[in-house]
């Protein structure tokens, strides 16, 4: 069973992940109905505690909670200004606790903030992205999207390309994919791949081209423009030349191979415009599936035992 909190993909077994994805599938049928609401979380309060602006993720969680009839509070915070006012992160946690929220969905620029929060509050804590650590619901919606296309995740060959070292999406996806039996390769310049990433169970390589024809999924990570100023690679142009997925590279991939991206995209850097718009790209499915997966999580973590078809 999923624990009280969802902080890291480490917590989830293949069985847990399958349960979350199966439930998401059932719940998606609900969202296809004219009345898109379930009463499951009526009377429960979910707080979106966002220390980093991410409209997409916040709206996805908000909608998921509302579809399950929960009350939602949105709390955008800025750690630095809170501290300037003499309020620590722990004070904020206790304030939310005093308000009696049932779940806190936290997005934070500081790795581990959800872990700290979970130690201070009684509410369920769901990690909606923490620093360069993890983004479990992104990984779950990615797994959902992959499973939807291939039916089985086990045995698939997945490359995650780009800025692994700064990416919470990469960390969660590596764990989730490996738990589900996929073969994961991390691709990019050595400056963007942790030296110890091999201990995650993934293969590390620095060249994308030799992999392409074998891949089932090519997962591209956003390359932030600031990284070139940090001397992690010479220029965005060179990055695009060596690791960007363009039409030429895409043409080497198998006919049913997929292209994925967690968004927002830097078109022309890690992904060429024609690739993002090709039929292989399931980037919009990823967004849509995010809602179902987040509903599923809230349902399983907070819900009573009412049937999905109720």
């Amino acid at each position: 069973m999923i624990g009280k909190h969802l902080l890291s993909m480490n917590q989830l077994t293949a069985h847990d992940i399958t349960q979350i994805l199966d439930t998401a599938e059932s719940l998606r049928r609900v969202t296809d109905r004219p009345i898109k609401k379930l009463p499951t979380l009526r009377g429960r309060t979910v707080c979106n505690l966002f220390y980093e602006a991410s409209t997409r993720t916040r709206i996805s969680f908000e909608l998921a909670a509302k579809r399950l009839s929960a009350d939602v509070i949105n709390f955008s915070a800025d750690s630095r200004s809170s501290v300037a006012k003499g309020e620590s992160f722990k004070d904020t946690a206790w304030t939310l606790e005093a308000m009696g929220v049932d779940a806190i969905i936290v997005r934070h620029g500081s790795s581990g903030a959800p872990h700290q929060l979970a130690q201070w509050v009684d509410a369920h804590v769901i990690n909606a992205g923490d620093g360069a650590h993890e983004h479990p619901t992104q990984a779950l919606l990615d797994l959902f999207s992959i499973r939807e296309r291939f039916k089985e995740i086990e045995g698939l060959k997945v490359a995650i390309v780009g800025d692994i070292i700064h990416s919470r999406v990469a960390r969660s996806n590596v764990k989730g994919l490996i738990t589900m039996g996929a073969e994961v390769t991390l691709v990019g310049p050595a400056t963007l791949i942790p030296r110890e990433a091999a201990s995650w169970g993934a293969t590390i390589t620095h060249q994308l081209d030799p992999l392409l024809e074998d891949l089932d999924v090519c997962y591209l990570l956003r390359v932030q423009k600031e990284r070139q100023n940090e001397q992690l690679f010479p220029s965005l142009r060179e990055y695009a030349n060596l690791w960007g997925l363009d039409a030429r590279r895409m043409s080497k991939m198998k006919a049913d191979a997929l292209v994925m991206h967690p968004g927002p995209m830097n078109r022309g850097v890690e992904i060429a415009a024609e690739v993002s718009e090709s039929p292989r790209s399931i980037i919009l499915d990823q967004v849509a599936n995010g809602l179902a997966v987040r509903m599923s999580l809230l349902y399983l973590m907070l819900g009573s035992n009412e049937g999905i078809d109720a």
């Binding site: 750690s79 003499g86 992160f89 004070d91 620029g109 500081s110 903030a113 700290q116 620093g131």
Partner: peptide, 10 residues
């Protein structure tokens, strides 16, 4: 105490 009650990074 309030300084250690912050996020790990801070």
């Amino acid at each position: 105490q309030q300084e250690k009650d912050q996020e790990f990074s801070y």
